[in-house]
Nucleic acid binder design. Sequence first.
DNA 1: CTGGGGAAGGGGCCC
DNA 2: CGGGCCCCTTCCCCA
Length: 282
Amino acid sequence: MPRSFLVKTHSSHRVPNYGQLETQRDISGACSACGGPVVPLIFPDKVAPSSPGDPPQPWDHASVIAHTSLPLLCNEEALGASGPEALDVSRADPRAGRALSAPLRDSLNHLNLPPLLALPMRWPPLLGTDGAQTPGRLLGAEQALHGHRPAHAPARLARRRQLRCPLQAQRCFTCQFCDKEYGSLGALKMHIRTHTLPCLCAVCGKAFSRPWLLQGHLRTHTGEKPYACPHCSRAFADRSNLRAHLQTHSDTKKYQCKRCAKTFSRMALLARHEESGGCPGP
DNA sequence: CTGGGGAAGGGGCCC
DNA sequence: CGGGCCCCTTCCCCA
């Protein structure tokens, strides 16, 4: 997905009011690293490992997980572990007697879910804002995790990577979960978070790849809308949504149909216009 | 069918 | 190098 026009604005404008959120995190206990709720990660039952035909799963790669330390970011603190043993995935096994944090346990009870459900990696079961399941839309990570992808033997996979990046084999970092490639280890680590989803919402249990995504999600629970439209009384929880809304106040719409010259406030509307066949043409 | 809001995903940039 | 924040984009849903 192209990300163009990444214009940095003045940092003085980056002062959203997270007071409520900070208070909430204090209640539940927060990860000092990501600000998310502190809950132990529970890996799927290793008694029932992935079948050979299944795609590789994050929990199938404990060594990689430990190396990146990403998925254990939160539960390390919850477990109070430090040192190498903190990276031992087996320590996060629910059968080892690890308890959920009280807020999350309450959330799970509220959702009436079976106890000790394989929680984090496949969690949550596509919850809507009302807590109901929303089958219509798969999360990106869920798509990556559950998409049908043939398993690759390590040697063959390495061979394929070599063929793909013959000149940059040393600088090519490939995701073990989806084969995406990155030019830096940092970029790869950030991407891996989209598979491991280390930040969990204490209210509904939904998992996110990054703390600020969780913060944005928490606004759906608190109702906080720090981004107000200067032209009307509307306010938004998300800056991008405000930006899209501002287009509705603009006389000059940003996206124009090349066939009929009709303009639209959003690219999605233009795309829908072009795909609907309703374009009268020039 | 169209316009718009809400929520979320994810790569890039800066510190 | 990692975290935080930036931005755009996408999807779903509703009026």
